[in-house]
Design a protein around this nucleic acid. Sequence first.
DNA 1: TATTTTTTTGACCAAATGGACAACTATTTA
DNA 2: TAAATAGTTGTCCATTTGGTCAAAAAAATA
Lengths: 208, 208
Amino acid sequence: MTKIVQIKQTRIQREKRLLIQKAALQVFSEFGLRGATLDKIAKACGLTKPNILYYYSSKDEIYAEVLQSLLEEWIRPLKDISENGDPLKEILKYVQKKLTMSKTKKQESKLFATEILHGAPLTQNILAGSLKETVDDKVKLLNKWISEEKIAPVDPYHLIFSIWSMTQHYADFDVQVYSLLNTKKRSRIFQDAEDFLLTFFTRCLKQD
Amino acid sequence: MTKIVQIKQTRIQREKRLLIQKAALQVFSEFGLRGATLDKIAKACGLTKPNILYYYSSKDEIYAEVLQSLLEEWIRPLKDISENGDPLKEILKYVQKKLTMSKTKKQESKLFATEILHGAPLTQNILAGSLKETVDDKVKLLNKWISEEKIAPVDPYHLIFSIWSMTQHYADFDVQVYSLLNTKKRSRIFQDAEDFLLTFFTRCLKQD
DNA sequence: TATTTTTTTGACCAAATGGACAACTATTTA
DNA sequence: TAAATAGTTGTCCATTTGGTCAAAAAAATA
């Protein structure tokens, strides 16, 4: 008796898996892993619960896959900071990219935040692995720029943390941010945020 | 028939309610509202589940009370920014206070973050109410300082957001922060963070 | 078009969980 | 110390929820 392993996905499998992932991202980011239910995901994508379980063997597997595909995307922009560009410009470009992600990938940001907040049970190895590698690499670059007096001296690790926290704040804490701004400022929030952040980091890093 | 309403709490009630609140904070901050179970809370404080429900009528009520008492404490430091002190010093003092809270009140920070992240169902009115009042008040003060040229011009709302996000990051994302730092830097993380933040805000706000 | 394979679903199950309650114990008060 | 009140718990229940399964429907293939 041979076990038959399906290698190639059918068209329907590709479509439905994507559909489920999208719905799952939405539901997980709103309710967290434990607050999300298969029924909610099912409703969100218009499939039945058993049908979802035909494509994924468990809720946890869906979560793991959604998180996995998010993580790669999440780390990527950091890698783009280039040794060759103008140091300050490269950093500001990164800030802008992260801020844009907060605007356009709010669900992803929230899901990531929830995961880390609750101890990163599925992400720890990635944090300590490929993310740490990339961060260490960029820390070296930042230190080089500092020693060459191309940017003002700061702790590069904490500089990176500050970029992450300030930009992601606009996605993760959007409810708070919106609550505190009046209608006028609310409509130009990302514009204002960009102005603020660019000014901020420029003042802090500019070498005079 | 008269309905008897108990006004004064007994000693045991005070003690046990506090015990439950402490345990609940711990469990809620780790698992979120939906991930936390009465059994977990019961175990964490060494009481039985029915016993907990003798003091609180539901899980949601416990959550609401824990969150409520946290919120007041959370907002308070902002109020301490004084019109009378030296502007830059007042702001830096606030940064320091918030950073200290991230160190000593990690659970509170995480619980607050989770609540906001998931739409602040129980907090929205407070955000839009007393917090907004306080923020608006301080925004006025910051604008005054700017117009008097005592600090450099920045958007005061976003300045406040930046303080919140950067300081709270060390509590909420501790797992990530720790994963990325080596042992040596890990042990002086809050020291380094303080140095970084004070330098950062000084460079950004100093009027020359 | 007949056959095989993939996809879908209604009905069902077991475990987890929030909560009720009556009986019992400990504490307070008169 | 007796009566009243407050506190505690074992047991039970209903709902929610992750997941199963066999049978039906749809799609792909020969």
